[in-house]
Design a protein around this nucleic acid. Structure first.
Lengths: 148, 148
DNA sequence: GCAATATGCTTGCATATGCAAGCGAATCGC
DNA sequence: GCGATTCGCTTGCATATGCAAGCATATTGC
């Protein structure tokens, strides 16, 4: 009943929840953005042209299109992101990274790296981290738009 | 900059989001509960006395106390959970699992196991799953009340 | 070409959740 | 013992998010 696959999946959810909860506090107080806003900036930056259609961004973030619309709006207001229209298809409104957005993202990445360091602390051997990283990669089959 | 710890932490978040998103759809349509409601039932079941104080449950689930209050209310209404008072301390209201709650949880666990099977499919060796499981355990240092 | 359909985005509504304030009960300091 | 503090829980308010409907633009079938 409680086989090892169930255990692994539960641990995956728990580890992610815990890591995310820790991040959330520091992100909002230090950088003024939420974890999801950070991930949105990161997805845009790591896309081929530093811009993504909203629908595509929604898929990559595992959120609905309406969430992308509403998350992007305030960040466009403060110029972390910009609205870019497609010359060929007027339906598409790209989310693009501004210079200010890139700077904010870089700042937040420092915090993220620090937290990732807590997560994988000195007790982890380099080779163990590599193994873990590879295994986690296999767990996220969302091929298109993998962040890493 | 993009060191392997950052990559691992990002993959952890992505893998968990993806798994959770898949779970959410099937849980709500098949079992009529959300992923968090499932986890709440599971936490209660796996606690020492099949019951937990709300504050303790909140800690284990990484949510606020108010969320526990509000999540538990409808499940108490439909008798999946019951409210138990502490004889010694009138401030404490335990969340306890009912028989109906245990049945619902057992049903949902079948779905969870199926999804965990998709996650860790035939391409995974048994020893690899064990390695992954152990590594994920090390990632969730929340010692008290680990679900697994 | 034009109607029918599909696609991308936004918006109205409902639900979910955190924070801070409030309330009652227990504990502490004296 | 009693006022002050702490603790557990709940509730008001603000924010976040999904779903379904609506709207504009593209594409398809004929």
């Amino acid at each position: 009943m409680t086989d090892i696959r169930i255990t692994s999946a539960l641990r995956l959810l728990q580890a992610a929840d815990e890591f995310r909860a820790g991040l959330a506090g520091e992100f909002s107080s230090v950088h003024g953005i939420s974890v999801n806003e950070f991930l949105m900036l990161l997805h845009v930056q790591r896309s081929s042209k530093q811009r993504l259609a909203r629908v595509e961004l929604a898929k990559r973030m595992h959120v609905s299109a309406s969430t992308v619309t509403r998350m992007a709006a305030p960040m466009e207001k403060i110029r972390l992101l910009s609205r870019d229209v497609d010359e060929r298809d007027a339906r598409i409104v790209f989310v693009a990274l501004t210079e200010a957005g890139a700077e904010r993202l870089a700042d937040a990445l420092v915090t993220f790296a620090k937290r990732a360091g807590y997560l994988l602390d000195d007790r982890w051997q380099g080779s163990e981290v590599e193994q873990l990283s590879e295994m986690l990669r296999r767990l996220a089959p969302g091929a298109a738009g993998t962040l890493t």
